[in-house]
Design a protein around this nucleic acid. Sequence first.
DNA 1: AATGCGGGGAT
DNA 2: ATCCCAGCATT
Length: 355
Amino acid sequence: MAVDSFSAKARKISANIGAHYVDNARILPWRSSPGGNLPDPYHVWLSEVMLQQTTVGAVKSYFEKFTRRWPTVQDLARAEEADVLAAWAGLGYYARARNLYKCALYVTEKMDGIFPQKESELLLLPGVGAYTAAAIAAIAFGERAVVVDANIERLVARLFAIDTPLPKGKAEIRSAMDAITPDHAAGDFAQACMDLGATICTSKGPKCGICPVQKQCAAFAGGEMERYPVKPPKKAKPVRRARFFWIEQQDRILLATRPPKGMLGGMRGLPDDGWAAGNDGHATPPIAGEWQVHDNIVQHSFTHFSLQVDLAVYQDGKMVTNKGDNIWWPLDNIAEAGLPTLYAKAVDWKLKEEK
DNA sequence: AATGCGGGGAT
DNA sequence: ATCCCAGCATT
């Protein structure tokens, strides 16, 4: 395609997406209205980290909870890390919460509570990568940054029929996004593109009939929208087994704090057999005595494997001595323990089974 | 360049 | 059941 017609197409795309956003922007708790004042950088940063690989619907209540409990980045930095992790429980990818806290400490102690404004400086913060740095720079500070998330990858790959498989195709996609990103209000434009990807240019069944850039879309012209973006095939997920140990005493259960990195790192959970390290389903119980084993009470799917869980319930009445990082937790307040979903499912099963 | 890292919603 | 989502850090 000639350079002139490319830039003419780019201008039309830019204008049409921008105009469409004015009346179709989603109303979201962390977002200001199109053309309005720049939103609070703390809110933008917090929402962007929560939104990494996570849908808008899943994030909303967590964003409200965090901003209510910790209204500023200094408030967050003053919290205990364990409280931040517990508040994150259920949202997944817990390294995000650990980096969030680390970043809050850094911004508070080293930057006097002021977030850096440039994309290149934001990129240095823990938990802030290429996407998030560009998004914060554009949305919170008005910088002309080129924002590329999964929505924009799909939208741009279709508009320009880019069929180089990801992740290699990412460079071409970024370059095309650069070409359609306007000099002013790049933050609104990025959010407009993401809204378009989330609501119209969807992965399956795109609503091309109401799309503001249908006429500019090469994939629509070719009639194979769902071919883009081209992705590599996925690997099969192995099924693994785990055993959890239920030790209850005086209406409390014993919880463990998991190792600080790796699967569910730093989170609380039921004592288990070391499944995360590969000791699937065969560990010696943590204390001697009689155990009743319930097979396959819970099934859970992770990114790269799925897990079938057995629950071993301690039968002896003798007092159990606590040790290590374990903590006795009152069962009637188990919702506050901050258990990742995997363990929350097992607790639910046990409490239901008792009725 | 590959891999590890959650969980839930849509299809 | 499978795919996917406002990705990042590590190797």
